[in-house]
């Protein structure tokens, strides 16, 4: 007589896609990228030219007049904020036990992060390096040429 053995586990249902894998991958890819972006940023700002003394409005305005540095800084902003938000999300998930509190904290975190990304991007791309009412001594050198035209 053969023995009928029950199927030990019911067939597994396909779940909805979860983003954990992509979050993990994002952390691994953005990490090395951020090291390059941030250390180059620090080197260019603090070690080249006149070093730390060169940093003023004119210096920043001069950099943001160049699309290369605009994209550089925006990349840093997006990568770092999303990287940091994912890290904070991990901490929230670790330390909150109540599902509602967890959802609201993670929701707040992404909202704040989203607002910062939006505002930061807006500032970098709409930045006016030569405001009309500012003291000309504080502005980048190319403002004079623009003003005389």
């Amino acid at each position: 007589m053969s023995v009928q053995i029950e199927i030990p586990n019911s067939p597994r249902k396909q779940r909805v896609t979860n983003w954990e894998k992509y979050g993990w991958l994002y952390m691994r890819i953005s990490g090395p990228l951020l090291i390059v972006l941030i250390f180059t940023h620090v080197f260019v700002n603090l070690f080249t030219g006149e070093g730390i003394k060169q940093i003023d409005f004119a210096f920043v305005a001069g950099k943001w007049a160049d699309p290369f540095w605009q994209w550089w800084d925006v990349s840093m902003l997006w990568l770092a904020l999303i990287h940091g938000t994912l890290g904070m999300r991990t901490i929230i998930n670790d330390y909150t036990e109540k599902p509602k509190l967890r959802t609201s904290l993670v929701g707040t975190l992404w909202s704040v992060s989203g607002a910062l990304i939006l505002l930061g991007t807006l500032v970098v791309f709409t930045f006016d390096p030569c405001p009309a009412t500012a003291d000309p001594n504080l502005l980048p050198s190319f403002c004079e040429a623009i003003a005389s035209n």
Partner: peptide, 17 residues
Amino acid sequence: DLRLDILNDKEGVWRCR
């Protein structure tokens, strides 16, 4: 594949720090 799918879960391998 089945086991990899099980561990590709919210509480699976990605929580390893």
